[in-house]
Amino acid sequence: MAPLKVGLCPALTAEVLNSLQHAGVRTVTEFVCMDLELMMTRCCVSYKDLVAIRKVLLVQFSAFPVGGSSWYKEILSTTAILSTGNSRLDDMLDGGIYTGALTELMGAPGSGKTQICMSVAIHVASRLEQNVLYVDTTGACSGRRLQEMLQNSAGDKESAALSRIGFRRIFDPWQLLDLLQKTKAAISKQSELFYSKLKLMIVDSVAAVISPTLGGLQTEGHAVMLNVSRQLKVLSSEHAIAVLMTNNVVQGELSEPWPGLGRSWQHIPNTRLLVQVTGTQDRQMLLLKTPRLPRYLSATLKLSAAGILDLHTHTGQEAQRQLEV
């Protein structure tokens, strides 16, 4: 919570602040929570001043209400739906990957999570011409495979599309937090062209960096995990970025597939898809969590040289589909 500072409100002069600090009141939270009469006796500041300061602080630091209709209008103007390049998968996701939300792919080793991530990255970079930040935590992303996908789908726009994909390898949660912070700062500054057109962030995989810190008697890992999730949510909703991440599966009580990282992580993604192997190239996608469509929709994708892209129809011709009323 923010510390008390001169200039927060007119009544909070250096003198008042000094006496408050002397009495052990340092932060806004402490000030607001403390009994005013007690504070008056301790700091020798007039009751009237304290009430005035408190009023201003409460107004400054509280959330303010937004009307439903104006909120709706804002959503319409800021949200973008990024097509994944596969019409069946898009249908399952009600159009594609939404900005301002976290979408999670979970699956067993070798089920094709990374392939889907790379394919979506290529589609967004080449067809939709938006920037993608690819965070690789397992060293699995391969430049050659990206190039192969591109050659098999887009053809000539090769190098332009590849330079729209920013790529970063990180191996621990601290680096991830660092990266998220810097990304947010870079977007707000609006000086880098890459960050001003950034629409999709891919974290493959989120489990690999977090799971080594989880468990045991330490609660630190849990705090780190929730910190990461909060930063991801803030990044996606404040800057209208879609986040696509991958997770492991563990076996549930009835040996059904269950997302890794434990119960509290289950609440984090807005949309969750399970990837299962049904054939050498066939992958079944099952919708486990969604805010928009009925659950348990499923579709079968084919992994080919072009990733998961539709080979015959290109649904992503329009640069970016805006939500329609």
Binding site: A125, C141, R144, L146, S159, I165, G166, R168, A185
Partner: peptide
């Protein structure tokens, strides 16, 4: 630590490279 030099901290060169660079490195 990283606050000292905010200009370099937020530039994309800081560890973030493009997929094109990555392809080059792999080759």
């Amino acid at each position: 630590g990283e606050q000292k030099d905010p200009s370099s901290a937020s530039s994309p060169d800081d560890g973030v490279k493009t997929a094109l660079d990555m392809l080059q490195e792999e080759r």
